[in-house]
Nucleic acid binder design. Structure first.
Length: 735
RNA sequence: GGACGAUUAGCUCAGCUGGUUAGAGCACUGCAUUCACAUUGCAGGGGUCGGAGGUUCGAAUCCUCCAUCGUCCACCA
């Protein structure tokens, strides 16, 4: 029996191992592809393999979704690195503008009773940045504790100076091309957060509402319906369907009415958007407070009268209504309709109301002067490598997004999400990118009287005032694959590592982020940002519920890592977890993989204790037919696992490895070798030892991307000349 | 209203391009156990793959319809 390292005689202790192993990897420099080339691990002309880490919010803490994303990406990266590729995993964090600012504002208000206006722009920003910095260190150390082999020397932040230059450069380019425009439109205004939000930041909540059918006045010929009578003091038209026989006689006529004390001028218009079957078939047009009414007013040149302000209060010229909350105004107007006998019908209906995702405020559609990315506006793209989009051709941003996926420049896993993607693009409207908050990339536009200047720096002459707004946080995130590689400079990194290989993220941000990355990269570089999008599902609790603070059912990945080991947590997250499908996790599940760690630990202990006659450098001895069969089976398993990994079927690769190690290697191979190890036939014994060591090491290598800590630890104990780390060991190829 | 997905053992889920008796983990039952590991081993029970049709020599897998559940998008005034 060979002498064993002392610690092998005890059960595997992940807590004392993982931090130490991570430290060794960090010191080795192998997370950085440049170091790998310097040290001869990777060939300089090797095929590059790049993943950019979807940046977690700088103010967040690690949750199970992050843990899953880190695990999947780390598996892909470690596999690529071991396969000899020039492998870069570029990490970073996101400033998450609205989320971060509102959190800090809340904290300050709680502790000091001060609002952002009490502090002023500069002081608030100073406080937010301080908070972001502290919080940054927490999340980065948590990412590391899960084993992420990111190149931290290239770490980026969506709001640092380099990214700001990229943001301003893209903004100016789009501005000059007429694709970023400033105009009045109906925006989604969040009265609680006092900012605009994009269509995607709206969450619909079903509530009961009252639908009122009425006439503006006794002599007005047409009745209309609404759930928001208070907006009706801003009506400028009534729209009917052009083919609706009931109303044709009125089309084109104009009426002066006094509606609950407010004088209105109503024109009757015909518009195809009106559904003749809904309500009375006539729609009261309120251009200032409804998206489709605004569009109608543009088609028919109707005046716009704003009657609700940014605080969701009435701003109509009427003493009874002015300054009232919309809900109060609604009651006043309904009462007035009753008093004047104008109310024809009221019925309770279920209605979806729009709320702001971040603040929960009820969204008020308001006309505002904002900055927009025009997605349907034709422009000439000078250079394009995207199939379906020719260099020098006229196209639109929407078309770039569509073509990139339709022409297979970008493949989505699972494939069925491509349909969802196309469906979203068809319905896409212009993207509102300005936000009335202070934390974020400030819009690089300056005003002086009627003059407007867009540039990377402030104009040097006097009298210019910068636009007070900041950009939607997704604007900077959408540049992430190339802004992190040094663009707008023509860096080596950009040349080598872009387009990236895989974007791995949750399906819930397919629209928010993935689509916009395709848009921005296509526009800016004329390429796709990545070849493959791998979408993971949501990690749920054991009962299948979403993890949430209010339910208190969250499982903390850091706690899991401390209790069972990050390796066990990683296995539990990845085995049987198919792309695009939600998964469940529980402590029991993680525990099962802690057992697996222990199984590996003990099997290794057994092999090392009994293989004293061989090392990894021992040439292949004469094998028995059964040994040959074992080696053939091992080779087959290697091919199968490799194929699964090449096809990003991580759930199958991990399951197969688990099963092979436990139920083939440990249960069968080791058991049947025991008599030979204890027997007197020296040749047979040596062959058995050699086979055991081969099967073990091949398994440690293949398991390494999934459970990097324990495999690296055991690798360090194997008998061999070369004491290099497992992280850079070549991927097994037994054919 | 539109789209997408799911429905396989008690539970949670695999099953890649259709191919011999449908798999795993957990749970369950019985047995074993100073020999790497009780964070163990061996053996076993348990499924007409949601329903109905169809294509095929052959269907959990492809097509049609239905049912139930879930998700996303749009939002109707």
């Amino acid at each position: 029996m060979a002498d064993l390292p002392e610690k092998l005689s005890k059960p595997y202790d992940s807590t004392s191992t993982e931090a130490r192993i991570y430290e060794r990897w960090s010191e080795s420099g192998f997370f950085n592809p440049d170091t790998c080339i310097e040290k001869g691990v990777t060939k300089p002309d090797a095929e590059p393999y790049t993943i950019v880490l979807p940046p977690p919010n700088v103010t967040g803490i690690l949750h199970m979704g992050h843990a899953l994303m880190i695990t999947i990406q780390d598996v892909m990266i470690r596999y690529a690195r071991m396969s000899g590729k020039r492998t870069l995993w570029l990490p970073g964090t996101d400033h998450a503008a609205i989320a971060t600012q509102s959190k800090v504002e809340k904290d300050i208000y709680k502790k000091e009773g001060k609002s952002r206006h009490d502090l002023g722009r500069e002081e608030l920003l100073r406080r937010i940045e301080q908070f972001a910095q502290e919080s940054h260190d927490t999340i980065v150390s948590q990412i590391k504790s899960f084993g992420a082999s990111c190149d931290w020397s290239r770490e980026a932040f969506t709001l640092d100076a380099a990214r700001n230059r990229a943001v301003n450069t893209v903004f100016k380019k789009m501005y000059d091309d007429g694709l970023i425009v400033r105009k009045h439109r109906i925006v989604n205004w969040d009265p609680k957060g006092q900012t605009t939000i994009s269509d995607d930041e709206i969450v619909y909540e079903e509530r009961k509402a009252m639908m009122y059918t009425f006439k503006y006045s006794k002599d007005f010929p047409i009745a209309i319906s609404t759930t928001r009578p208070e907006t009706k003091v801003g009506d400028t038209a009534v729209a009917v369907h052009p083919d609706d026989a009931r109303y044709q006689q009125f089309v084109g006529k104009e009426y002066h009415v006094t509606f609950c004390g407010v004088p209105l001028h109503i024109k009757i218009i015909a518009d195809k958007e009106v559904d003749p079957a809904f309500g009375t078939g006539a729609l009261g047009v309120t251009p200032a407070h409804s998206q489709i009414d605004w569009e109608m007013s543009e088609r028919h040149n109707l005046p716009v009268i704003q009657v609700i302000n940014e605080f969701a209060k009435m701003m109509v010229d009427n003493d009874e209504l002015r300054g009232k909350k919309t809900t109060e105004a609604r009651e006043i107007i309904v009462q007035c309709l009753r008093d004047e006998n104008l109310l024809i019908k009221e019925e309770e209906i279920a209605q979806n109301i729009s709320t702001a995702e971040r603040t929960g405020g009820i969204v008020e559609p308001l006309p505002k002067l904002q900055w927009w990315v025009a997605v349907n506006k034709p422009f000439t793209i000078p250079h394009s490598e995207i199939s379906g989009i020719a260099s020098g051709s006229q196209t639109t941003l929407k078309e770039i997004m569509r073509a990139a996926v339709a022409e297979k420049g970008v493949g989505i896993i699972p494939e069925h999400f491509e349909k969802t993607y196309f469906h979203w693009i068809e319905n896409l409207r212009d993207w509102c990118i300005s936000r009335q908050i202070w934390y974020g990339h400030r819009i690089p536009v300056w005003y002086r009287d009627e003059e407007v200047y867009c540039g990377l720096e402030a104009p040097t002459d006097a009298g210019w005032e910068q636009d007070p707004d900041t950009l939607d946080t997704w604007f900077s995130s959408s540049l992430w694959t190339f802004s992190t590689l040094g663009w707008p400079d023509a860096t080596e990194d950009l040349k080598i590592y872009h387009p990236t290989n895989v974007l791995e993220t949750g399906y819930e941000i397919l629209f928010f982020w993935v689509a916009r990355m395709i848009l921005m990269t296509g526009y800016t570089l004329g390429t796709v940002p990545f070849r493959t999008v791998y979408l993971h599902g949501t990690v749920r609790d054991a009962q299948g519920r979403k993890m949430s603070k209010s339910l208190g059912n969250g499982i903390d990945p850091i706690e899991i890592a401390q209790k069972f080991g990050a390796d066990a947590g990683r296995m539990a997250l990845v085995v049987g977890n198919t792309p695009g499908t939600d998964s469940r996790i529980s402590e029991d599940k993680v525990k099962a993989y802690k057992h697996f760690s222990n199984k590996i630990w003990n099997a290794t202990r057994f092999v090392l204790a009994n293989a004293e006659d061989v090392t990894l450098d021992t040439p292949r001895p004469v094998l028995t037919p059964r040994d040959e069969a074992i080696m053939t089976e091992l080779a087959a398993a290697t091919v199968s696992v490799t194929t699964h990994l090449d096809n990003l079927r991580l759930h199958l690769a991990s399951e197969e490895l688990y099963h092979y190690f436990w139920h083939t290697f440990a249960d069968v191979i080791i058991e049947e070798m025991k008599p030979r190890l204890n027997g007197s036939d020296a040749d047979s014994k040596k062959a058995a030892q050699w086979v055991l060591l081969q099967v073990l090491t091949t398994n440690l290598k293949m398991l390494h991307p999934f459970i990097p800590f324990i495999t690296e630890e055991l690798w360090g104990m194997l008998p061999r000349e070369n004491k290099s780390l497992l992280i850079i060991e070549p991927w097994p190829n037994l054919q």
